[in-house]
């Protein structure tokens, strides 16, 4: 087995463990490349079926391409789609131009997810996060409990060895399952390439720009790139060390920081 085969087989094992252990389970499908790869692996694990709902948290500010892709492939793949929205916040006008962007994310993404988990009483969620994405995620386990407030006690986690995962979920807790934890961004693209996985067109360069991560339209900035095929993307990734998140998170933090510094009289 080559490197990608090993990753694929390990992920399928994890997905099947999660399905066996938890009845009320869903996959969080942001329509990004990672969660779509995860969806692909779920279909492999269950011989073309997706035997649980796919949860899409809709901020209503997503790119049009995302909605189109979601509806097209949900239909083709026979996916039971559950769309979660924070209607209350949306009807009170919340958006990226209101207050600061961090609160917008908090209400339209995090709170929306909390409400949806509450409503459908999911006990476990499959997520496409990777260890190499973000500092704190290096400490993630494959099966990771979260309390009702989504808090994660990373300093005192149960040990996880030899594929023996946390299989008991208590009370209001839900378990986050991370089948792609051991993949890197490059692995994902090489796998998409090998398997020919459909991906939202926003990832591919148009007029010298492409999106390295996708989400809400107002908060995503494209990076300079001429990679208009998966092939070129793999090549680009092998040679650059530019931040994946730099397109979005820093902008938000900057805006928030400016506002705070102004309030403190610095500027």
């Amino acid at each position: 087995m080559d490197h990608l085969d090993k990753l694929e087989n390990q992920s399928i094992y994890i997905i099947r463990e999660a399905y066996k252990q938890f009845k009320d389970i869903a996959i969080l499908w942001s329509i990004g490349k990672d969660s779509t790869t995860l969806m692909w692996l779920v279909r492999k694990a269950f011989y073309g079926k997706v035997p649980f709902p796919a949860l899409h948290i809709d901020t209503s500010y997503k790119f049009n391409e995302i909605y189109e892709f979601r509806d097209e492939w949900a239909k083709k793949w026979g996916i039971k789609l559950v769309v979660g929205k924070n209607d209350q916040s949306l009807s009170s006008g919340m958006g990226p131009d209101q207050q600061d962007k961090l609160s917008c994310c908090g209400q339209l993404k995090t709170d929306a997810l909390k409400q949806t988990i509450d409503k459908y009483r999911y006990k476990a969620l499959l997520l496409g996060i990777r260890r190499d994405e973000h500092g704190i995620r290096a400490k993630e386990r494959v099966f990771s409990p979260r309390n009702k407030q989504f808090q994660w006690d990373y300093k005192d986690q149960p040990p996880e060895l030899w594929d023996q995962f946390k299989n008991k979920q208590q009370g209001e807790q839900h378990i986050r399952v991370h089948p792609l934890l051991h993949w890197t961004e490059l692995d994902i693209w090489m796998y998409i390439h090998r398997e020919n996985i459909p991906i939202v067109s926003l990832y591919f360069a148009r007029d010298g720009k492409r999106y390295r991560s996708i989400g809400c339209e107002p908060c995503c900035a494209p990076v300079d790139s001429n990679a208009d095929t998966v092939d070129k993307m793999v090549e680009e990734l092998k040679t650059t060390k530019v931040s994946e998140r730099s397109g979005r998170a820093q902008d938000k933090e900057r805006a928030y920081m400016m506002q705070k510094l102004r309030a403190l009289g610095y500027m």
Binding site: A249, Q250, E253, R254, Y256, M257, K260, L264
Partner: peptide
């Protein structure tokens, strides 16, 4: 901490 930045 706010990302790379710092707030009081």
């Amino acid at each position: 901490r706010v990302g790379i930045f710092g707030d009081h």
